[in-house]
Design a protein around this nucleic acid. Structure first.
Lengths: 353, 353
DNA sequence: GGCACCTGGGAGAGCGCTCTCTGAGTGTGT
DNA sequence: ACACACTCAGAGAGCGCTCTCCCAGGTGCC
């Protein structure tokens, strides 16, 4: 009745008055700490309901020194780091439009929402932006960072570690760093492709690689070559691409000129594989009958290509979820030993091989 | 020297002591309010530098009642709203991986970062999740919501309006609602496609539409048909798709069976257009020589298709930036009249038409 | 029966910031 | 010369919450 105007949202105090208990007790019920008499719990819960109370995050954060949020930082190529585009960022400024990134987001959001948390999205593509990220975290708007770097020598991980901010990487850092990360066994992925091509009976295989200054590219190739060697093919021709469609087309053309009797191909990502498919079709090669093609990523390009791509799939959503778990663990227990998790890729068989 | 251990991050108090002024003065300098003696400003700024001070967001939010953050809510298809997938969400649970969404994010982040803000990413794909979104905002973690709905009868806009939370939509709501939005002139986009096909000399054109329960699909078609009528083609055959690659293939096959002498085609999105291209190639039609194809969206599919797609481009990044501007305006001045902004699409000419 | 111990609730001190109010100092008008 | 406005810094009261103390009452043990 006369419980005030209550135009502004109700506070703990209001609920306490309504329930006839102290502020502390309401707080205890809401946060489920210590024993509170079940009867009183009920009364409090009813009062919460009646007042339409929602806890004020700022007030809570102020005293707990926890934001209850994490940052999802995409450390992409930007102004001052032009050359050497990363694996998943073929176009400048398009980082976020990359479905690869979308899958990460899906995994992160999926994990966090179960805990009532949500990621703050940040872009760190310049020295300024990186400083902004560090400051933002220091201001306490987020308790830690999930970091997705699109190029190898990203300085952000070091900055974060230096500032003592909890942080987990997607993909192993180029330089060893005291930092957790999740990654996929790229070598095993390459091996998967090799095994599949050999099992299909391919005899003269080749590979289109990603940029070889990227660790993942080297690993995929190494895994592929090692497995081919085990199958009795010690030498596998390889041409370097840069993960773009055009580079895939170029690489394929080069490979065909050099080795016209090619019958199997492993391409380090789907977009380049799609380019390879275009060139093969132009030159009248039937896929998979004459040339079998295996991609990497299982991106939307794999599904929309004709023939649809057989490809190596990374469990990105699970990796992203695990990355998030690692971060929250770290936030809760800053002193625990750093752990990283490596995931196994799988082969998705479609039409191209 | 003996300025304390300063292990924990420094507070305003620390800076004030260092500068030999009061807390209030430091606050004034940092927030740039009222006149402060330039000399003192300098001293304070130096003290900030010296202490490595960063303002605590929670404390600030507590008193200003502003989070300094906005939510970017993707209200996608989920458990309880299975049927009738939205325009940009061909696959369940993949909403975030859609490049369309990525472009929105890019625009939003681009606009916000200039103001030192960053979006909190939320997914609202179930009744529970929607409640979570509303609660989250009510808790004050974000000052308002940018809402991207992937289907027409999304109840979230009404929930937010009902709760009195500032909110701007991407795309006009299906039902009229007291809410701001940005959108593209879909009709004009359809007209752009028609004009281009006619200018190329196409005589027998057809269209593959999006799901006709989606407003945007109807508008694109209407714009296309109206323009064709103006060019003396009062009747244009149209087949309905659902924005997926497969539906584009199906629609194209149907259209060709019905009208084998087709020489021009407008497809309501690029993914379906890519499907149409596949079918045309299979049936030996040369694009653009025998059949000219115009898509919609200017997505990555448009670039990676062969031939690359001529397509209608929505200025999504700018739209997203404007949406953000509208929201921040609204947060600052809740009583101002609602405004919405409609953008003009443009035609991107590539090989397919 | 006295003491220690445990359980469950209240009081109150802050967390770090903003912002209003107050008051000292400096001009300006008559 | 005095009153008055004006400028700019300081004091201090919270914002809404958590969490540590403290205390009352009940229980178990010797």
């Amino acid at each position: 009745m006369n419980d005030g105007p209550a135009k502004a949202s109700p506070t703990l105090e209001d609920v306490a008055r309504e329930a006839g208990v102290s502020r502390a007790t309401v707080s205890r019920v809401i946060n489920g700490v210590r024993n509170v008499d079940p009867g009183i719990q009920d009364v409090v819960r009813r009062a919460v309901e009646a007042t339409g109370y929602v806890p004020n995050r700022a007030a809570r954060s102020l005293v707990t020194r926890r934001a209850g949020a994490v940052a999802l930082v995409v450390s992409g190529a930007g102004e001052d780091e032009a050359a050497g585009e990363g694996p998943q960022a073929p176009f400048r400024g398009q980082v976020l439009a990359d479905p690869f990134f979308g899958r990460i987001t899906t995994g992160v959001v999926g994990f966090l929402r179960a805990r009532g948390m949500h990621p703050v999205l940040m872009l760190a593509d310049s020295t300024d932006a990186r400083k902004q990220v560090v400051d933002y975290l220091r201001q306490g708007h987020a308790d830690g960072a999930l970091l997705v770097s699109t190029h190898a020598r990203d300085p952000l991980p070091e900055l974060l570690v230096g500032a003592g901010l909890p942080c987990v990487l997607f993909a192993r850092p180029a330089r060893p760093l005291p930092i957790s990360y999740v990654d996929v066994a790229h070598r095993d992925g390459g091996a998967l492709a090799a095994d599949h091509l050999v099992a299909r009976g391919c005899q003269r295989v080749a590979s289109v690689t990603g940029p070889l200054d990227v660790l993942a590219s080297r690993e995929r190739l190494a895994g592929f070559q090692d497995a081919m060697a085990r199958h009795g093919h010690p030498y596998v021709p390889a041409v370097e691409g840069n993960f773009t469609l055009e580079s895939g087309e170029r690489a394929m053309a080069g490979l065909l000129a050099e080795q016209p009797d090619l019958d199997g191909l492993f391409v380090a990502n789907d977009l380049m594989a799609q380019g390879a498919l275009h060139v093969l079709r132009e030159q009248g090669r039937r896929v998979p009958e004459q040339v079998a093609v295996v991609g990497f990523d299982d991106s939307s390009a794999a599904v929309s290509s004709r023939p649809a791509l057989t490809t190596v799939r990374q469990p990105i959503e699970e990796m992203a979820a695990e990355m998030t778990r690692l971060l929250l663990d770290r936030v809760d227990q800053p002193d625990r030993r750093l752990t990283s998790v490596i995931f196994e890729p799988t082969l998705v068989v479609r039409q191209s091989a």
